[in-house]
Design a protein around this nucleic acid. Structure first.
Lengths: 163, 163
DNA sequence: TTCGATGCAAATAGTTTGCATTCTA
DNA sequence: TAGAATGCAAACTATTTGCATCGAA
């Protein structure tokens, strides 16, 4: 599954809008599929398939993990979902919101810091000019040390991730 | 295993030199451990643990995969080995050679293009100035589209990886 | 002769697939 | 009511761990 063909993002403002997109593409709107969308709308940032399958108490019912994966794949083909690999750990899925954000992931404390994608524009063009290589920080983001962890070389094992 | 403490690289020119380093650290030199080193010296670039365990016909005998992982971990703690995550797929291990190289990985054709780490210096400093974030392209390299794949948006499923 | 390292097997995490059943369109 | 999607179980990939045995120092 080398996302060779990255479907253009389809930003929608609520579950109903997403559902309309699905119908427009001739896809069925099952409750399992709707639940995945609900979980993504409730989520504050990129979440794992397992977190989606677990549901959100009182807000989103739990669902079958395999179906979640299948639905995420379908939704991503449609453009309603994107996924990122934030260093180690499971892939994380999110809605492509209006303000596109990319991540800087700290490999020490696991914090993922979201920056507007525009702010990486000249990093991207610097790399493209020099190597003829067009980096995409949206699927495999930049990993390194956040400001805090760069300073203190010794300790700090706390994870203050805010994905 | 969040490589919080990245051991300084120890570049050696042959298996015997590596073995000497092990002994100096009070580590034992078993045949399994020596075989991992031999495989890494024979390898042309970063290889997976499984490739090491499979051995090289006529040159390096196959070995137990679990032991390979344990030895790679030990060798990495000593600084004799580094590992990278080249997009999807297994982690890949290599000796830290004198001329440090980092990778640009094409997510379309899987080619991994090695560039001298010095050539990424100002990409690194641009990111550090702007975000106070110190990127490390050595563990999770930059992923995107290589020159060839960036040009032809449609086809091309061939993998011309040269890691 | 000790304790680090091995090799096998089993466990684990993340993800995918097969298949009979369910339910949307 | 056709066939898309589900849900469960099982397979799969990458990696780790338990444990009895072996062997380097």
């Amino acid at each position: 599954m080398t996302l060779a063909h990255v479907t253009p993002a389809v930003a929608v403002e609520d579950v109903d809008a997403a559902v309309a997109v699905l119908r427009a593409r001739g896809l069925r709107v099952s409750s399992a599929r709707r639940v995945v969308l609900e979980a993504l709308f409730v989520a504050e940032g990129p979440v794992s398939a397992e977190e989606i399958a677990d549901g959100v108490p009182g807000r989103v019912p739990p669902s079958d993990l395999a179906s979640v994966y299948r639905n995420l794949e379908t939704l991503e083909e449609v453009g309603l979902v994107r996924h990122v690999h934030l260093g180690h750990g499971p892939g994380r899925y999110a809605l492509p919101l209006a303000d596109d954000r990319e991540y800087l992931v700290c490999e020490h404390c696991d914090a993922a810091c979201a920056v507007p994608e525009a702010e990486l524009a000249d990093v991207r063009s610097l790399i493209q000019e020099r190597f003829g290589f067009r980096p995409s920080f949206s699927h495999f983001p930049i990993v390194g040390l956040c400001a805090a962890c760069a300073l203190q070389p010794g300790g700090e094992e706390e994870s203050h991730a805010h994905v």
